Computed example of a mutant assay.
Amino acid sequence: MRYRLLLAATLALATAAGARNPVFQGADPQAIFVGKDLWIFPTGGPGGSWSADRFGAFSSSDLDTWRPRGVLIRRDDIPWIKDDGAPEHFLWAPGVATANGKYYLYYSVGPQIPTPSRIGVAVADRPEGPYRDSGKPLVTGELVRDGKGFEAIDPMVFVDARSGKRYLYAGGSAGATLRVWELAPDMVSILREVPVETPPQFTEGAFMHERAGTYYLSYSHGRWNGLDYSVHYATAPSPIGPWRYRGAILTSDARHQGPGHHSFVRAPDGQWLIVYHRWEQPAGTAPLKGERQVAIDRVSYAPDGTIRPIRMTDGAAAPRLGGRR
């Protein structure tokens, strides 16, 4: 999500045992497993106070108790951030990938106006950092005018186990354009841009995962604070398409609104999970107000490989790890 739409958010950690969906306040959660622990990297700083000048992380071994992992990187640690001459800058929508025995943190840097947004990358030896910026933007966007152009936002990196290639997916919001690049083995430089089509209903927040030889491109549709914000997906025989649009799988219901900007993860016990943000409020009128909440729910696949509609849960109905459900 773009920086200016997030300044009112507050991130509060759920540290007490027995916490249930939603797990904590936050937005744009990127999730990965590190061993048996689920790590979530959201927009915002750690420790219960919102900040657009840093990233933090949180981990859990059971999805009940969440541990803050401190500051990963601060805005002041990015040497090129002021090179565009804009009067202020913000960080949002982190994406994390692992390769070469290291962790790579990709992130959006705004504003989009008066200068184009950019995507940076930083490297660490551990998931909690500290992360060291690579020294230059990885991708620079284009100013969007009359609904055309490209915003360099919402980065996600997928390392294809079958080919060994590493792909960066990014883009969305105004212009609603998806672009993909193949990264070099160092994960901090680009080999080439890969031509891809933007799939139907794409707005932002692309995510790629693979299961049983099928590649799933999922993404957010609609306005970030609207009732139509939702998760849609397409499938393909490769990480770069061609896409076959499959429809919406996560949409507003009577108790939760605007679910989106998500990650898919496979737990050590084999269950698939989706980590996303939503508003905890009944159906009403937009724009939605209040704080977005991070939630985790189960993903179920039909025999033909399609994803069944995802049911948002609360309380004890939420998934658990370590033999608990």
Results as ranks from 00 to 15, higher is better:
residue 280 E to W: 03
residue 283 A to M: 13
residue 76 D to A: 15
residue 17 A to G: 10
residue 277 H to K: 09
residue 99 A to W: 00
residue 199 P to L: 12
residue 66 W to L: 02
residue 89 H to G: 03
residue 162 R to D: 13
residue 215 Y to D: 09
residue 113 I to T: 14
residue 32 I to A: 12
residue 276 Y to F: 15
residue 143 L to G: 07
residue 71 V to T: 11
residue 267 A to D: 08
residue 255 R to H: 14
residue 195 P to N: 09
residue 214 T to L: 09
residue 25 Q to Y: 12
residue 78 I to M: 05
residue 29 P to C: 11
residue 221 H to Q: 11
residue 172 G to C: 13
residue 114 P to E: 07
residue 201 Q to Y: 11
residue 74 R to Q: 12
residue 143 L to W: 04
residue 323 G to L: 00
residue 156 M to D: 00
residue 59 S to F: 03
residue 71 V to I: 14
residue 202 F to E: 00
residue 257 Q to I: 05
residue 214 T to K: 11
residue 251 T to H: 01
residue 236 A to V: 10
residue 268 P to Y: 11
residue 259 P to G: 01
residue 279 W to C: 05
residue 190 I to G: 11
residue 38 L to G: 03
residue 15 T to D: 10
residue 216 Y to A: 14
residue 166 R to T: 10
residue 292 R to K: 04
residue 161 A to K: 15
residue 167 Y to V: 05
residue 18 G to A: 06
residue 199 P to Q: 12
residue 91 L to N: 07
residue 4 R to P: 05
residue 251 T to Q: 08
residue 312 M to D: 02
residue 10 T to F: 05
residue 292 R to G: 10
residue 223 R to L: 14
residue 10 T to K: 10
residue 126 R to S: 09
residue 324 R to A: 08
residue 121 V to T: 07
residue 30 Q to A: 11
residue 82 K to F: 14
residue 250 L to S: 04
residue 304 D to M: 00
residue 111 P to R: 08
residue 81 I to T: 06
residue 72 L to W: 03
residue 267 A to Y: 12
residue 306 T to C: 04
residue 184 A to R: 13
residue 288 L to R: 03
residue 205 G to L: 00
residue 131 Y to W: 08
residue 23 V to K: 07
residue 153 I to D: 01
residue 190 I to F: 11
residue 152 A to Q: 08
residue 282 P to S: 15
residue 254 A to K: 13
residue 65 T to C: 09
residue 193 E to H: 00
residue 306 T to K: 12
residue 270 G to K: 08
residue 131 Y to G: 06
residue 109 V to A: 10
residue 147 G to R: 02
residue 74 R to W: 00
residue 64 D to Q: 13
residue 224 W to V: 04
residue 180 V to R: 01
residue 222 G to F: 04
residue 72 L to Y: 01
residue 235 T to Y: 00
